[in-house]
Structure formats: C-alpha cells, structure tokens
Design a protein around this nucleic acid. Structure first.
Length: 435
DNA sequence: TCTGGGGTCCTAGGACCC
DNA sequence: TCTGGGGTCCTAGGACCC
C-alpha cells in the first residue's frame, strides 16, 4: 500500500516575515498581494482578529490601526529562498519528495512504516524543519494524496494532534471524513461544492460514499478520482520529477492606471522580456504568444474594456527580440485609446525542446547563431540582479510599476540586506532588529 | 482612491478527415 | 423520398489549485 505525507508550512508568508523579526513574534501580521491589493497571508494572531483571506486592504484600514497589525508587501525573493531551504531539509528526510507549491510538499513514505511509526516520523520531520529553518510545519499522512491533504488540514485545525495526523487507519479516515465539509476536499472548489450541496452531499464522507462511475457520469473524471482517493485508493502518483512547463505567464496590475500607449507598450515589453527569461531558464522554445489588457473591474463609473490577442510564430523561438516584435503587433491590434487600464499580461505557450523543431516547407527558420549567444549573455549579466541590461522598448519610466510600499529586506538573497547583529553595548545606536 | 499572480487539467464544439 | 459513422486536432472557456 502506498503512503503519502503532506508537509505544509503554517501561515507561510507571514512566518517568513517573522523569521527575521523576532520582535514581531507574537504580533498580528499580514502580507499583501502584489501591488499591495489584498491580504494573501495572515499570522495566527491576525486570523484570531478575524482578518479574512483575500480581503482588500483598504477595507480593513481601521482594524489595522486599532490593533497595530503589521503590514508587509509580498517579498517573493525571501519566500522563495526560505521555501528552498525547507524543501532541501525534506529531501534529506524522505526517499522521494514532490514539491507541490511554494509552501508544501508530498513525501513518499511507502515502506517507512516498516522501520518507524508514522506519527513518530511526522514529529521528526516537524522538529527537523523547525530546527534547520525555523519554520513550523504540519504533517498529514495517508494512503492517498487527497486523504493526506485532509489529514494535514486536521493537523492544523486541532492543536491536540501536535501537528501530525496519521490517517492510515480506515476507521480514523471515516471519522475525519464525517467531520469535514465537502468544500474542504482537495479538488472541490466553490462551484462543485454548490452542485454537491444541492444533491445533499455536504460532508467529505458523503462524497466518499458515492458510486465513482456515477460521479464520473454526472460530473467528471476528475471528481471520480477524488471519490476513489477519499476511499484510500491512490490515483495520483507522487511526481518527484518536475514536469516541463506548458505555459509561462507574466501579468501585473499597475500601481497607477495606465492611459498612454507608450506606458502600456513599455509594460507589455517588460513582461515579455521577463517571460522570455523564464522560458530560456526552462530550456524551451515557444511558438505562441498572447497579450491581454483590461481596465479596472470595480469602479462602476469607469468604462470597462478588456481584450486579448494571440498569434502563432513562424517557428519556435526563445529570442526576446522576436517575441517583443510580435507582442508589439498584438498590442496595436487590441489597444483602444481613452480607457484607464488597470492590468496587462502576456502568455507564452506551445513549447518545444530546444532544437526539436518541425521546420516549415516554405519558411526558413531563423538560424542566426548569434541569437542564442546574445540571449545567453543577457541572462548571465542579469543573473544576480534582474534588469541590469534591458531592451530600450521596455522603457525607463515606472509610471506603471506596482506598489510595494511595505517591502521587507531580501534578508537571505542580497548582500546589502543581510540582517545586522549588534551587541547590547551599542544599544544606544539605532537597531533595526536583534538576533 | 485603493481588489494578485502563476499555473494545470478537462470539456465542448467546430473544422476537418475518410 | 431517403443523406452515416468514426475519428483527430485545435481552441476557448471554465473549474480547480496555491
């Protein structure tokens, strides 16, 4: 029988911010989405104050003032680095690890139960990550990924579990399933919950008791798998080899509304340059590019407009210049003067491995050998500090740049931002923090 | 005044093939 | 008068995830 563990960091972004600010250890703290728009992470103190996930920050200004809630912009350089450290620790503990997201991983524990108790193993994982990285994690253990997710949820919800729930026993599975609303099940979102509730299926157990074939007919093959997984039948294998990406997106909301074509053009070109950089990092070429722009969604007085356009390139490429040219043509086709634009983005798709190209009978592929060298040089120069070298069409203005007004230092990834350690003696000096 | 970003997978429907 | 069946490929859109 397979055994999976799901290891998930508690309040990940909020915990990362606290790592280097011991003075804020017990403070309510929230992290905002890009552009300082919504709340995307909350410390347990902030949760206790009733701050909801996803709420626009301007709607909770009074609470922030009243309770002295600490506010941070998203600092992905920091979160990415801490995540990497957590994953490295997990890889030292388990035979196979699937990094599922920035703050969680599945471990393959098949066979581990022969050597050591599963709960004991979970507690060891928890203690080791705490010691190595200072991050608190919860561990859910079960015969399928979907059940492991649910076990993890329980480990978070009930402190008496000490952060580890072993759900390999079918009787325990049944009990937990009966306590969980169906909306908590992995793969059951808002729409599916509504449809299931309408059929009288409100708990995870009720979903587990459905006939899989029936569910497939009325819903989809995806939900059928969920039903099977809830019954302990593993349908989703551990994917410990990261599959190649199928698309790369780069999109941003603007710090201020964009009204000039030149600003939009510069923004789009910057996104294209960033996406092309990611594409080369994946060692892929792409043949499809799409561009979209839109106005704000929430101001009833502003006229709304949104549009997108895409095209297929003559041959797959990873040359930023080719993509910039194509993006310019697409933007011209959808740009309309007179609107206040709030957001834009681009998508690269239709990927091919480098050198694996089906040539067209009539079109000569661009075999310019300088292209690859130029892009490689560009990436090398920008490796440690993004944007040292860039294309003129990305512009130098930042009229459209996103707001990040509460950004913490990149403690672990920039030399200049390393935390300072000061002695008590110099306590009359200004100390940002102590370690 | 102010509401995120980056992904995956599945399905339906149309165009096309013999 | 009566006008099939089986299949592929592509795209757009929707649902889900963190």
């Amino acid at each position: 029988m397979s055994v999976f563990a799901l290891v998930d960091c508690n309040n990940f972004y909020a915990s990362c911010e606290k790592l280097f600010r011991p003075d804020l250890r017990h403070a309510p703290l929230i992290v905002l989405s890009n552009n300082d728009g919504c709340v995307v992470a909350r410390s347990k103190e902030a949760k206790a104050l009733g701050i909801k996930m996803g709420v626009p920050v301007h709607k909770i200004k009074a609470q922030i003032q009243q309770h002295g809630i600490q506010v941070f912009s998203s600092n992905y350089a920091l979160y990415g680095d801490i995540s990497h450290r957590v994953m490295q620790t997990l890889e030292s503990l388990a035979p196979a690890v699937e990094v599922y997201s920035i703050d969680e991983a599945f471990l393959d524990l098949t066979g581990v139960a022969n050597a050591v108790g599963l709960t004991e193993f979970g507690l060891h994982v928890r203690a080791t990550v705490q010691q190595h990285v200072g991050m608190t994690v919860c561990v859910g253990i079960a015969p399928s990924k979907t059940l492991a997710k649910l076990a993890n949820h329980a480990a978070k919800q009930y402190p008496a579990t000490r952060g580890v729930v072993d759900l390999t026993d079918p009787a325990r599975q049944k009990k937990l399933l009966s306590l969980m609303p169906v909306s908590e099940v992995w793969g059951v979102g808002r729409k599916l919950s509504e449809r299931l509730n309408a059929l009288g299926i409100t708990t995870a157990l009720q979903l587990a008791e459905q006939n899989p074939k029936d569910i497939r007919r009325r819903f989809s093959v995806v939900l059928e798998r969920t039903v099977r997984e809830l019954n302990g039948e593993s349908c989703l294998p551990l994917e410990d080899i990261t599959p190649t990406k199928q698309q790369i997106l780069c999109s941003r909301s603007f710090g201020q509304r964009v009204t000039h074509y030149s600003d939009m053009h510069a923004a789009i070109n910057s996104y294209v340059a960033r996406a092309a950089e990611k594409l080369r990092h994946e060692q892929q070429h792409c043949q499809r590019l799409s561009v979209y722009i839109r106005t704000g969604l929430f101001n009833p007085n502003d006229p709304r407009y949104s549009n997108s356009a895409s095209l297929r390139l003559d041959y797959p490429t990873d040359d930023t210049r080719v993509l910039l040219h194509a993006a310019g043509r697409l933007l011209q086709g959808i740009w309309k003067e007179g609107y206040r634009y709030a957001k834009a983005g681009i998508t690269l798709s239709d990927f091919y491995d480098r050198g694996v190209t089906q040539p067209d009978l009539f079109i000569q592929p661009n075999s310019n050998p300088r292209s690859a060298r130029l892009m490689h040089t560009l990436d090398c120069i920008n490796q440690h500090q993004r944007g040292r070298v860039f294309f003129a069409s990305q512009g130098t203005g930042n009229a459209w740049a996103m707001n990040r007004n509460y950004l913490s230092p990149s403690y672990t990834t920039h030399w200049q931002a390393l935390p300072k350690v000061t002695s008590k003696k110099s306590s009359n000096q200004k100390r940002p923090f102590e370690i």
